[in-house]
Write a protein that binds this DNA or RNA. Structure first.
Length: 273
DNA sequence: ATGGTCGGCAACCGA
């Protein structure tokens, strides 16, 4: 009996400010699991009750005051969750939840939710410590044993990875090549993370190049829709084992046009298990 | 070539 599982990743840029927008999305799409980034909310102030009322009873929280913050919210119970830190910082940029028997799964699935550092404006690690941090973070991801699923393992990695690695993940490869998020060094490092864990890029499985594919449009462009100078900063990867179980990827671009939107839009994956 | 806009949180930092 095939079982459908849907997972959404969304950089919400303050979960408290946009709780009504999130609620609207959940009522419309009803994903089984919602992974948020940039919640900007300490765990003791997280609007758990609102999510419970919406049907999302289970939460794996990793938040902090003011900056960063990730969470996995779920309608299905998970077995356990854990967090990883990177670059010797306490930043809340990762949480992983293990879905298994309690969620009705015979074979368990590990779900990683990431918020990779944006890296500042100057694409030189010598001049810009924020860019150095981003590169170091990607190196640690590449080297992390928990991000290298065994061939038989079922794992998913989602999040705002803050890198648009492919030529058609940006509106103009030529004009973006010196802009942080699309410089060769960070694109190569993200590809190394992917290679090290043999991860499959689900979004590009469904929309191969040369089709343009974006998940983010800058707040600084009032005509974001017509200019359409987007970037694919958000990603959904699966382990080899799950790659042929992905039946759909949906980028909900219209949420960028909402009142007081996030600059990122939700990306939803459907799995047939 | 430059500046354009957000959110948190209360002067700027991070994006």
């Amino acid at each position: 009996m095939p079982v459908k599982l849907t997972i959404t990743s969304w950089n919400i840029n303050s979960v408290r400010l946009r709780i009504n927008l999130v609620a609207r999305f959940l009522k419309a799409v009803r994903p089984d699991i919602l992974c948020l980034q940039e919640t900007k909310c300490p765990d003791d102030k997280f609007p758990l009750k609102r999510f419970k009322r919406l049907g999302y009873e289970y939460a794996a929280l990793n938040g902090q005051k003011g900056y960063h913050g990730v969470v996995v919210l779920s309608r299905l119970p998970f077995e356990c969750f854990n967090v990883q830190t990177f670059c010797g910082k306490a930043d809340c940029r990762h949480v992983a939840a293990e879905f298994g028997e309690r969620a009705g799964l015979r074979d368990p699935i590990t779900l990683h939710n990431f918020y990779v550092p944006a890296g500042g404006d100057i694409p030189d690690p010598q001049l810009n410590p924020k860019f150095a941090h981003k590169l170091g973070f990607l190196d640690e991801m590449r080297d992390s044993a928990s991000l290298r699923p065994r061939p038989a393992e079922r794992a998913i990695l989602v999040g705002d990875l803050n890198v648009a690695p492919l030529e058609h993940d940006v509106w103009s490869h030529k004009q973006m090549i010196r802009i942080v998020s699309h410089t060769p060094i960070e694109c190569d490092k993200l590809t190394s993370v992917q290679k090290a864990g043999a991860w499959v890029d689900s979004m590009r499985q469904f929309t191969p190049e040369p089709a343009k594919l974006y998940t983010w449009w800058s707040y600084r462009s009032p005509d974001w829709l017509t200019a359409d100078k987007g970037r694919r900063l958000d990603h959904i990867w699966t382990s080899q084992m799950l790659a042929d179980r992905v039946s759909d990827i949906a980028v909900a671009k219209h949420y960028r046009g909402a009142a007081r939107p996030s600059d990122h839009v939700p990306v939803t994956m459907t799995l047939e298990l």
